[in-house]
Design a protein around this nucleic acid. Structure first.
Lengths: 230, 230
DNA sequence: CGTTTCGTTGAGCGGGGTCAAACGACGTGG
DNA sequence: CCACGTCGTTTGACCCCGCTCAACGAAACG
C-alpha cells in the first residue's frame, strides 16, 4: 500500500503540527509534555492505519483529513464506532492488541506516538496520565451518547443528529462537505445506505437541509434541531 | 427516599469491604492507595443513586447487588448504558454534571469515593491516574462492543450475547438468576420487552436454554455461542 | 469514451414494534 | 385460608419502519 500519493501538494513527511488543530482536547494533547513529539505520517484515501488483532504499539492524533474506526462481524456486518477529525486522538487500547480497524477517509496526516513511550511517561508524570484519563472519559461519553442513538432513535433522528454533529465538529457554519461515503454513514448509524439516502431526501423535502452538489450540504439548523429534540 | 429498608439483615452502614469482590478491575481499585477509603452506603431496589444533571461529586464501587446506568430522551425512551455488578466502578464523568442516571436493581451496597479527592490524588500520584485511565479505557471498549450489538445484531443475537455475558460476569457456571427485569434487558439491548420475552421463548424452544423458575435460567452454552458467532 | 464506484429511487417483504389480553407470583387484608 | 389487586411476564394479532433486491443516474477514473 503506497502511502502519500493522493495527498495534496506540499511536503509529505511533514514536520511539526501546523494544521489548524483547534478541536476537541483543547490546545493540543501532551502540550505540557515536550519530550513527547509525534512522528508525522500520511495515509491515502481508504488506506488502513491499523487492523483488528494487530499489536497496538502506537496511538494517533489526526492533523488533517479524517479517520474511521470500526469493528466487523465474521459475516461482514460492520459498525463504525467513530469518526476522527483534526485534533482527535484514536488508537488507545486497554490490552496489547487493537480491537478495531482504522482507515483514512481521505488523504490524511497524523502524528504517531509510541504507546510504550506514552505509558512510560504517564507512569511517572501524573498530569499526563490525567490527560489520558480525561481523554478516555470523553470518548466514553461520546460512545454512550451513540448507544442511545443506536438503541432508541429512528432513522430520521439518527441522520439529523449525525449531520448536526458533523457540522459542529467541522466548525458549525451549517454548510460543509461530508468527508465520508453513504456506506460509512450507514455503518456508523446502524442503517443501510438506502435508508440514509432516502432519509436525506426526506430531510431536503421537509426543508431541513439543501444538497449543494456532491457531498456538500447546507443545514437549516433550527428545523434540524427540532427533529432531534432530546 | 428511605435507604436501607428492604436490605437483608445485618449492619446497614456496614464497614469495610468483605464482599466477594473478585471481578473486573483486579484486586480492587485504589488498592495501592490507602488514603482513599470509600464511604459505605446502601440503596433499596429501584432507588436512585444519582440523576442526570446532578452535580457529579462522587464515584461508586459496587460491593453487593447490581446497578444500572441509563440515559433517557424527553419522550421517555430509555437506553441503559451499563449494568454494574460487584467489583465494578461507575459514576465517572468528564464534566461537572452526571450525564446519566443510576439506580440500584436490588438491595445494593456500594463504596462512595469523593470525586474531588480522587482527582486531587490522581494529579500527584501517577499510578492512581494510570489506574483511572485503564479503567476508563476498559469501559470504552465495552461501550464499543455494545455499539456493534446495537447497530448490527438481530434480536436473537442480542439476547443470546446478553445472557452469555451475564453468565460470565456472574461466575460462568451457566446457571444463574437474572438480576434485572425484562424492561431493563429490553432497554439495554434496544428492544421491547415483548421481543425479549419472545426471543427467550424461542431460545428455549431451540434448546439453547432452560427456564428454571422466576428469573433463573440455565444456558446450553455451546448452542448459545453458536448463535452469537463472533 | 467505456468502466467502475457511489448515490438515488422504486417495489415488496419481514423483523420487530404496537396494542391488547391473559397468566402467574406475590403480598395484603378480610 | 382464600379473595383480591399489583406487577412482571408471556402470548397473540396486526402493522409499519427499515431492509432487500433491483434498476437507473451521476460522478470519478482509466
Amino acid at each position: 500500500m503506497s502511502r502519500e500519493t493522493v495527498l495534496p501538494p506540499a511536503s509529505r513527511p511533514f514536520v511539526g503540527s501546523r494544521a489548524p488543530v483547534t478541536t476537541a482536547d483543547g490546545p493540543g494533547l501532551f502540550a505540557a509534555c515536550p519530550e513527547l513529539i509525534g512522528t508525522p505520517a500520511a495515509y491515502d484515501r481508504e488506506e488502513e492505519i491499523f487492523g483488528e488483532g494487530e499489536e497496538a504499539e502506537s496511538v494517533y492524533r489526526v492533523m488533517q483529513g479524517a479517520v474511521r474506526t470500526h469493528k466487523v462481524l465474521s459475516d461482514g456486518r460492520r459498525q463504525i464506532t467513530g469518526f476522527h477529525l483534526p485534533g482527535d486522538l484514536f488508537g488507545f487500547e486497554p490490552g496489547e492488541a487493537h480491537r478495531h480497524s482504522a482507515e483514512a477517509l481521505s488523504g490524511t496526516r497524523v502524528l504517531i506516538f509510541k504507546r510504550r513511550q506514552v505509558e512510560r511517561i504517564a507512569t511517572h508524570r501524573a498530569e499526563v496520565a490525567c490527560q489520558l484519563w480525561s481523554l478516555a472519559t470523553r470518548s466514553l461519553r461520546q460512545a454512550q451518547d451513540h448507544m442511545l442513538l443506536l438503541g432508541r432513535r429512528s432513522a430520521l433522528e439518527r441522520v439529523a443528529a449525525f449531520l448536526l454533529d458533523v457540522d459542529l465538529r467541522l466548525g458549525g457554519t451549517g454548510a460543509f462537505d461530508l468527508p465520508m461515503t453513504r456506506r460509512d454513514i450507514a455503518d456508523y448509524l446502524g442503517l443501510t445506505i438506502e435508508t440514509v439516502s432516502r432519509t436525506i431526501t426526506q430531510l431536503e423535502a421537509e426543508g431541513a437541509l439543501l444538497r449543494t452538489g456532491g457531498r456538500k450540504v447546507s443545514l437549516r439548523r433550527g428545523r434540524m434541531h427540532r427533529l432531534v429534540e432530546d
